[in-house]
């Protein structure tokens, strides 16, 4: 019991400790190696970091509830791209021509609806067929990507609406719009997972599905709602990002699922479900973004970032295993 408390405290604090370590490391290393004159811990730099965390971060909040629930969603990158295309393309549709800037909320709504539906479709398939979520979303990752290409072939889809860009580039109390969305989503998902019956049931199902079924929790619809949530959040992430960017390539969002899952696992969510929280995930997202930015700051390129993120993920897994190591006399199987 003593040991498990220690290891738990270590685990819950680990991600923040890691972030602290990164900050110290990059600040000191930055003094000597940085190409730029600004310090790494510069306020502007940190605000930018939060903003850049948003696209992955918003999706990661959805991934947290899906993984706590005992599932996984590999299709988020493709959903992200579809939502982006719907957002940008729909603003040019002739039927909305008369709306002026009123087209913006319509386009947002359309994109969010499409994302939610695509997520729900994954959930429905998982529920009704009983096929593992890993396989279902592996399939739809391909399928949804195919749909992305069907829109416009291999060409980018672009539409710049300056009102929208202004909104996306606006700052409020120093935080960019995207940052506000990230913080808002984190807060809402924290509320959902920690405070609502739906959230608590997500833990129960991921932890002991049979017990949840025996207690009368309807597992199928529950899972579908969570998939709809992550679909919605993938679309929201796209909406926030592309309001500013204004142009989407059909390959955008590729490998997002990997970044998102990495952030969630770094944040302490158990891969088998039942444990994890969005605060940890927030830490995981920040940690990864810090690493990307920090390595860039000291002059390393993307290759080092990839290498570091991959190895850190494995190291975290290894440490977790060591902390939970069984006693010497345990069965060796």
């Amino acid at each position: 019991m003593q040991k498990s408390t220690v290891s738990k405290a270590l685990k819950s604090g680990a991600i923040w400790g890691f972030i602290l370590l990164e900050l110290i490391f990059f600040s000191i290393a930055g003094e000597h190696l940085s190409l730029s004159d600004t310090a790494f811990m510069d306020g502007e730099n940190m605000l930018l970091l939060l903003k850049q965390s948003a696209p992955i971060g918003i999706i990661a909040m959805g991934m947290t509830i899906v993984m706590v629930n005992g599932n996984i969603d590999l299709s988020v990158g493709a959903t992200f791209a579809i939502a982006a295309i719907v957002l940008l393309d729909s603003m040019t549709w002739p039927i909305f021509a008369g709306l002026g800037d009123g087209v913006i909320p319509v386009a947002w709504l359309l994109a969010l609806t499409v994302g939610t539906l695509l997520g729900a479709l994954n959930g429905l398939i998982v529920w009704k067929t009983g096929v593992d979520a890993f396989i279902v979303t592996l399939g739809s990752m391909l399928g949804y990507r195919g749909i992305v290409f069907m829109f416009n072939g291999e060409n980018p889809t672009s539409h710049l609406n300056w009102t929208l860009v202004d909104f996306a580039e606006a700052e409020f109390l120093g935080f960019a719009t995207a940052t506000w969305f990230l913080l808002g989503v984190t807060l809402v998902m924290w509320f959902v997972m920690a405070r609502t019956v739906h959230g608590r049931n997500a833990y129960a199902i991921g932890d002991n599905r049979e017990a949840a079924v025996n207690a009368g929790i309807r597992v199928g619809p529950h899972m579908m709602i969570n998939f709809a949530i992550i679909g919605f959040l993938a679309a929201l992430s796209a909406v926030v990002f592309y309001s500013e960017a204004g142009s989407v390539n059909p390959n955008d969002g590729q490998l997002y699922e990997l970044w998102v899952i990495t952030a969630v696992v770094l944040g302490g969510t158990k891969i088998t479900g039942g444990a994890g929280n969005v605060i940890g995930t927030f830490g995981g997202v920040i940690a990864i973004q810090l690493l990307r930015k920090g390595l860039g700051h000291i002059g390393a390129d993307t290759s080092t970032v990839n290498l570091a993120v991959g190895l850190i993920l494995i190291a975290v897994l290894f440490l977790d295993k060591q902390l939970n190591l069984k006693g010497k006399e345990e069965l060796k199987v």
């Binding site: 129960a204 932890d207 039942g274």
Partner: peptide, 14 residues
Amino acid sequence: LAEELSVAENIYLG
């Protein structure tokens, strides 16, 4: 039982 949840949540599971 769901080990990660509290005693209360387990008792009133569902």
